[in-house]
Simulated scan of single mutants.
Amino acid sequence: MAEDAPRSRLGRGLAALIGDVEPSQAAAPAAPRERDRDAERVRSGARKVPIEFIRPNPRNPRRSFAEAELDELAASIRTRGLIQPIVVRSVAGKTDAYEIVAGERRWRASQRAALHEVPVVVIDVTDAQALEIAIIENVQRADLDPLEEAAGYQALLDSFGYGQDEVARTVGKSRPHVANTLRLLKLPDGVKAMITAGQLTAGHARMLVGQPDAESLARDIVARGLNVRQVEALVRERSDGPRPGPKPRSAAPQKDADTRAVEKRLSDALGLTVVIDHKGDGGTVHVHYRDLDQLDEVLRRLEAG
């Protein structure tokens, strides 16, 4: 499958380009006049097609559509019509058949509103680009729950050979965000169900990854209404177990001024606590980090030289 078009071009200004962000939901544009011209070009290229010619994208990461929201949108469409076109692509080898790239919620609501035709904009994109657009559209609107977002990222990794850095650039998120979101897929099904139901946030759930009793912890968190910091303390307490009493320690040898100066230089450069232990002619450098974001930043700086 040819994918010669640069992937990064989809990440910036994508929603405005395909005319799929409602004014109340769009972020303030850097160049309003230019983006308005882009949206106007899209609207002028829209045409109406029978609604039965359109089918959803099986790779759309969004799986959940709230019934109440669909009913509200359908009522609006009955009154005012479908103002924004649905973005579609032609189905290979078929005449008058289109697959949704962006706008499945509007398509579903239009069916409820009993529309016979809907406005569409037809674009030419690959499978990978169609998935990128679906993820970006939903992430920009915060329509995806954390597991749907993670599944979309995983599809880019598995089906199209992306790396996490490339996924991050494509969807406009940081690499730590992508990595932490993907970790949610490792949780037990019971915990995933609580995330989908909105009982647990992504911040809560990330603390449970790798915990042998993740599901019981999750139920405890929901029952007690714990915040993320309290969950972090609870997980640490369960992982560490009861703390032993203090043990006598021999006095640490005093470090010379040169070693302390090097520790300070490294700490200032990395923004983290650095401890140097000399042993003979060699030694050990300890870099202390609080979370994965800080570790990722250390790696980025080291790789950048």
Rank of each mutant, 00 (worst) to 15 (best):
E3L: 07
R7D: 10
S8K: 08
L10V: 07
R12D: 09
G13W: 04
A16M: 08
L17G: 03
S24R: 08
S24V: 11
A26L: 10
A26H: 06
A26S: 11
A26R: 10
A30P: 05
A31K: 12
A31M: 13
R35I: 07
D36M: 12
D38P: 03
A39Y: 06
V42Y: 00
V42D: 05
S44F: 01
A46I: 02
A46E: 08
A46R: 11
R47L: 05
R47F: 05
V49K: 01
I51C: 05
I51R: 07
P56S: 05
R59G: 09
R62M: 10
R62P: 04
R63H: 13
S64L: 14
F65S: 08
F65V: 13
A66S: 14
E72T: 12
I77T: 00
R78Y: 07
Q84M: 15
I86V: 15
V87T: 14
R89L: 11
V91D: 00
G93N: 09
E99G: 07
I100V: 15
V101M: 10
E104M: 12
R105N: 14
R106T: 03
R108I: 09
Q111W: 02
A113Q: 00
L115C: 02
P119V: 01
V120Q: 00
V121Q: 01
D124T: 08
V125R: 13
T126S: 15
D127E: 13
A128M: 12
A130P: 03
L131W: 09
E132R: 14
I133N: 05
I135K: 04
I136A: 01
N138E: 07
Q140R: 15
Q140S: 11
R141W: 03
R141K: 11
A142E: 09
L144V: 13
P146Q: 08
L147M: 10
G152M: 12
Q154R: 14
A155E: 15
L156Q: 13
D158Y: 02
Q164Y: 07
V167E: 03
A168V: 07
H177R: 15
V178P: 10
N180R: 12
T181M: 12
L182C: 11
R183S: 13
L184H: 14
D189R: 14
D189T: 15
D189I: 14
K192G: 11
Q199M: 11
A202M: 04
G203V: 03
A205Q: 01
M207V: 00
M207G: 01
L208T: 02
G210N: 05
Q211T: 12
D213W: 08
S216N: 13
I221G: 02
R224G: 07
N227K: 11
V228T: 15
Q230A: 14
V231S: 03
V231M: 06
E232I: 00
L234R: 13
V235E: 08
E237S: 12
R238F: 04
D240N: 09
P244S: 04
P246W: 03
K247V: 15
A257P: 00
D258A: 15
D258T: 15
A261E: 12
V262R: 06
V262G: 02
R265A: 15
L266T: 08
L266I: 10
L266P: 02
A269C: 08
A269F: 15
L270P: 00
L272V: 11
D277K: 11
H286Q: 07
V287S: 03
H288Q: 02
D293H: 01
D293G: 05
Q294L: 01
L295F: 03
V298K: 01
L299D: 08
R300K: 06
A304C: 04
A304N: 13
G305Q: 10
